[in-house]
Design a protein around this nucleic acid. Structure first.
Lengths: 155, 155
DNA sequence: TTGGGTGCAAACTCTTTGCATGCCC
DNA sequence: GGGCATGCAAAGAGTTTGCACCCAA
């Protein structure tokens, strides 16, 4: 028997520690803005836009300059600690990138606008296979589906 | 024996006709800007940004307002005649969308910046399979690989 | 003649940069 | 105390909108 939310909480705590550890060893100082953004990302289920982060931080009574949010995210991305997700709507989303390589992809529901994460081993194998066949050396990959989520598809 | 360039030329001519036919039946008038953009897209191998289109059109001695290019592309996208490609660099790319559903995906080479198209039936099958398993009704999908192309991977 | 198509310029949104201030180490 | 971290404001880049003019039907 597993308790997904507990597992997720532990995993996210691990991610926060991982971030602090990586940045600390690289010689970066700590600061309020960065801590707040990292903490927020760790508590999130899926990808967030900068605007959504600002709103969430304001709700938590943390007013942080927009530029600082962007700078924190740039730094985290440079160290591979967050993944940039681009769904094609002109806004960049960010989500924690786990050191174990665990990752998922996204369906953007055209009807309810929900962002639905999913992962699939067959898909990962297919990407690995075709990369080998084509001679690519793929470091990252991103799959975005557009259509109806399982709730909206029933109708 | 096939002659890929000849095959491509015929296919692109078909796409141009297809576009004119779809738009004509929908009651859209013709205009210089639209014809020029459609012709340019048909002659292209892979996805183009609006800036690249402007430069190419200028080279062909066609000065076209930037807003017109965007409006033409929006119209074509509304009818499913072009696909919007988002590689995560903040710029939208566009390429012809064939009526037969033939399509490809892209690798963006991190070293030489080349945009390399590829297609893979196993990948398509994997996406179809996982969509069915998850209960999604997928209308479009996009796969973007980041890494080294076959030329740069050799080194 | 009529209304969609086009060009130009301004507006808008998201993101980045410059600079003065603050605070961690 | 030194220098990275932060906040604010302005600049940039890509895209959209408003409006007058043009032209296909």
């Amino acid at each position: 028997l597993t308790y997904p939310s507990v597992v997720a909480a532990v995993r996210d705590e691990r991610w926060t520690e991982h971030v602090q550890s990586v940045l600390g060893r690289a010689g970066h100082r700590r600061g309020g803005a960065r801590e707040a953004v990292v903490e927020l990302l760790a508590s999130q289920e899926c990808a967030l836009t900068v605007l959504e982060m600002e709103a969430a931080l304001r709700r938590r009574r943390r007013r942080i300059g927009r530029a600082s949010v962007y700078r924190v995210l740039e730094l985290l991305a440079d160290y591979g600690l967050v993944a940039r997700i681009d769904l094609g709507d002109g806004v960049t989303r960010y989500e924690p990138s786990r050191p174990d390589g665990e990752h998922h992809h996204h369906l953007l529901c055209a009807r309810c606008q929900r962002l639905v994460p999913f992962s699939d081993t067959a898909l990962e194998r297919a990407i690995a296979g075709l990369s080998a066949r084509q001679g690519f050396n793929v470091r990252e990959h991103e799959v975005v589906l557009h259509g109806a989520c399982e709730r909206c598809a029933e109708v």
